[in-house]
Design a protein around this nucleic acid. Structure first.
Lengths: 102, 102
DNA sequence: GCGTTTGGTAAGTGAATGCTTACGTAAGCG
DNA sequence: CGCTTACGTAAGCATTCACTTACCAAACGC
């Protein structure tokens, strides 16, 4: 799991919708699919991608599997954005110094 | 421009490589393409996506076009991640309270 | 003006991807 | 034990997408 998997996972609108539903709390696959315009197998496949990206966790309870949001993937993405962000600011600072020294 | 455009823009490895090069400072299209394993038109198309996502700016200088990183798209993404993040924490807090009250 | 440099755009192509239906499987229930 | 529920997985299909080559337009130098 790394930031690039998180990015590709979040790039799909359906997967973001799944996360959106999971923000309200853990849900089973069927419950998630019921509120989405795609079939249950499609949701299952999306959950696989989200899980591999570290964005959700799976927990088997009886015959159902309950999925919940996981922070791990989000942290990965947040760190990536922060790295880019500070680098951009640094570049601006350097540019400003160069301009001033001219 | 919105966070979903930023996500789809950053989901592609070549586009991330372009940003990577731009972190060192503004570059022309040709200069960017020279350091990448794809053709110049490909880079040009990627720059279009990055520009529409608010991740780079274009500035015409003579016959060349110089691209530079822009903060706008990054802010959009950072805000999205922060929203998700706080929501996840909130969900955890509620779950903990519910467990304690049981 | 005329050729050169630089880069966006059009058109086509192969691979990736998101979806569907069909099927297999593990766990509860009578 | 069957039967049902809940879900993952396989296979197939349509669309999207990243890339290429070919072409066109704008700005500079002589």
């Amino acid at each position: 799991m790394a930031y690039d998997e998180v990015l590709t996972a979040l790039a799909d609108p359906t997967r973001r919708a799944v996360l959106e539903r999971l923000r309200e709390g853990p849900r089973s696959v069927g419950a998630l699919a019921a509120g989405l315009p795609v079939s249950r197998p499609a949701v299952s496949q999306h959950l696989g991608v989200l899980k591999r990206a570290g964005l959700v966790t799976e927990q088997r309870v009886g015959t159902r599997r309950v999925y919940a949001i996981e922070e791990r993937g989000l942290m990965e993405l947040r760190d990536y954005v922060d790295r880019l962000w500070t680098d951009v600011l640094e570049a601006y600072r350097r540019a400003a110094v160069a301009r001033a020294a001219r």
